[in-house]
Every structure is written in C-alpha cells, then in structure tokens.
Design a protein around this nucleic acid. Structure first.
Lengths: 203, 203
DNA sequence: CATTAAAACAACACGTTGTCCGTTTTGTGG
DNA sequence: CCACAAAACGGACAACGTGTTGTTTTAATG
C-alpha cells in the first residue's frame, strides 16, 4: 500500500505550488493571480493543480487552515509546558509566554504571513486571525468582568484584536526585525497602560 | 451644450451601477463579482458600464476616492467651525469634535462603508483608511514627542490606527447603533486610558 | 417638437477556467 | 533491481467573462 503523504513527487509538487502562490501574492495580489500563473511559476502541469485543489481559493484556505492548526497545537503544548514551569517558578505568567510563542510561530511562517496579511493578501484571513486571537487570549478566562466594563465589550474586543493584528502586520513589513520577546513587551506596554501612555503623553 | 453631470440618464445609470456594486459586495464579495453581474442587477447594458469605468476596480476606486474627498472637505469645514466656537467656549477640543464628525460622515455612507469594510470588501481600502486616519489625526501636531516614546513609533501608529478601524468596523456591523458622540467617547476611553483600564482591570 | 447625446444591441477575438482524455515518467515497495 | 501503481504531462474541450466596436434606438433638453 502506497502512501500519498510520503511520495516525494507529491511533496515536491505541493511545495512548488505553495511557493508560487506566495510569490504571486506579493507580485500581483491574490485577486489578480490565476491558476495558470501559479502552475507556470511552479513549473507543473495545470491539470496537476486540480488534482490537489479545486481552485486558488481552496489552495489559500488549505494553507491558512494548516497555519492555524499548527498554531493551535503549539499553543496547547506551550500551555502545559508553562504550567510545569509555574510549579518551580510561580512568577511566570501564561499570557506573556503565549504571546511570545505566537510571534515565534508567525516568524517561522514569515514569507507566507507577510504575503497573506499584506496589502494584496486575503481579507478573510484578517477576520480569521482576529477571531483566533480573541478565542485564544480571552476565552475561558476571568480577566474581564462584565460589570466593570467602561465600554461595550464588543468594542473592547475589536479594539484589542485589531490593534494587535495591526502591530503584527507592521512587524512583518519592518526590516528592523524585533524579537518575539520585544514584540510581546511592546504590545503589553500599549495594551496595559494605553497608547497615550506609551506615547509619553501620560504618567 | 449638454452637461454630462445633469443629464438624468447619466445620474440614473451611475447610481444604479453603484447600488448594484454595494449589493453584490455584500452578497458575494468584491473578488467574486463580475461586471456582467453588476450590469444585470443595475438593469443596464454591459457596454454602458465601460463608458464610465474601465473595470470593476476602477469603479470601486472612484467610489472610495469620492468618499475620501467628501471626508477631507468635511474635515476642513469642521476645523474652521470649531475654531470659531473656541473663541466663545475655549473648552471645546478639536480632536473630539473631529472624531464625531468622521463618524457622522461614515454614517451618511453607511451601506457603502459596511460593504467595503466588511469581510468581503476591499482590502486596499483598509490601508487607505489607516493612512488617512494617521495623516488627519496626527500630522501637523505636536502630540507625540519622539523622545518620550516607550515603544517604536511605527508600532504605536499601527496600534492606534488599526484599533480605531476595528472599532469602526464593529460599529458598522452592530445593530445597537451607538451615536457618533458615544463612539468618540468609547474610542477616547480606550486610547487615553488603555484597553485594560476600559476593561475595569486597572484604576 | 427637433436635435443630439446617451443607452441599448449585437458581434468579435481573446484569455482563463475546470474537466476530460490517453500517454509518459517516476518513485516506491517487494 | 524490477514491476507497477501513481503521478505528472500534453492536449483538447466547452463555457464564461472581458473589453472593444459599429450600429440602432431612445429620451432629455432647448
């Protein structure tokens, strides 16, 4: 019995397709690129593309889903690891190490992320990212007490998740390449104390 | 000599095209819709579309540019008006009334804005909005002193503009319909004191 | 009501799409 | 190392949207 997932030809073809996709998104945008262009750049037969994907949107969705699956797996692993560290060093806080891990995972997929989150990328991925951040960072915790809120919760959610996504996009486009640790600290400074504080307008 | 801008047929045709565009963005998204679908829904001949627009992207760009032009005009008017009020009542602050006016202008174009900023809208418009907000709110002012910054300025910019855009999107999708005044206050609370403060986590 | 521009109509070549074939190449398990 | 299943190929197909053009019909305006 042969295995589709280990056949080198399959791996090679799929990789070529995905690399071509990322390049073409950067070059001319997801909307404008065609299946024909993908297969030409990937140097494969156009018919072969349709063996693995229905169309270009099926392709990007599968890439995106894969990213989120790995991210979710990583977070579960990170969570249990942090809990163990907490036993010996109780000062470790989960959210901080979690944010660092998320930035590390984004960094591992930097090319893809830069393309898909860039100005010619996939709008629906933005929404997926915001939803994912919200679910992961705020679901199942007791940080937010409804009765203490000074603003409607849906605006608080939108504010934080959009702000974080915006910072991630900026990070991907910057050349300075701050470390995941630095990025987590930057985000914490602005979210905990407010952008005005971070701008030096308040104390 | 006939005037293209007053001929009722021209006005009717252009309006039908733009209404059809908004509806189709909501229905199936900007990427997926075709010129043929626009003209069918607008009940005009497909050839007529090309008299006024090169393609669907030319159409959305012209709609977007029109929105920004009106917004810019409104802001200039609002600015001089606020300066006059300031003479009799010095407590009036420019940024607050400006944000209120911006929300009012978005509200006047609510259908279009909801579609174009929605999950199937135009990604490049998001960028345009962030750039516009930044230019309008922070250009030519001395709010931010570089030397006082606790985080790199580009991340501060990205954080604030993305957060604000996210709140606007949430507002467009909500049914509760907060007033522009309420929205300006909500945004101020979160930006001045920070999201954590707005969440009741700090004092 | 006559004038004249706008809109409708029809037909065109062109490119992409998605889906077929049958054929050739190639990696893998025995 | 070899046989073979599977993968990749090359080509063909109808269907569809695109952008353009030339002609006819319609309707706003003075």
């Amino acid at each position: 019995m042969r295995n589709k997932n280990t056949d080198l030809r399959v791996i090679r073809t799929k990789e070529a397709i995905r690399n071509a996709l990322v390049e073409l998104i950067e070059e001319k945008g997801l909307d404008a690129l065609t299946v024909k262009e993908i297969t030409t750049k990937a140097k494969i037969n156009r018919g072969t593309f349709y063996v693995y994907y229905q169309d270009k949107y099926d392709l990007v969705n599968k890439c995106e889903d894969e990213f989120f699956q790995e991210l979710a797996d990583m977070i579960i692993e990170n969570f249990s690891k942090t809990m163990n560290e907490k036993k010996t060093n109780p000062s470790v806080t989960i959210p901080v190490t979690l944010v660092v891990s998320i930035f590390e995972h984004i960094d591992r997929n930097r090319k893809f992320m830069k393309a898909i989150l860039g100005p010619k990328g996939d709008l629906s991925f933005h929404t997926k990212m915001k939803e994912f951040m919200w679910k992961t960072l705020f679901e199942n915790n007791k940080f937010i007490q409804q009765e203490n809120l000074l603003v409607p919760i849906e605006y608080l959610i939108s504010y934080i998740s959009s702000a974080h996504l915006g910072v991630i996009q900026q990070w991907l486009n910057s050349d300075k390449n701050e470390s995941p640790q630095e990025m987590a600290h930057i985000l914490y400074t602005m979210t905990a104390n407010g952008p005005f504080y971070a701008a030096g307008l308040k104390r």
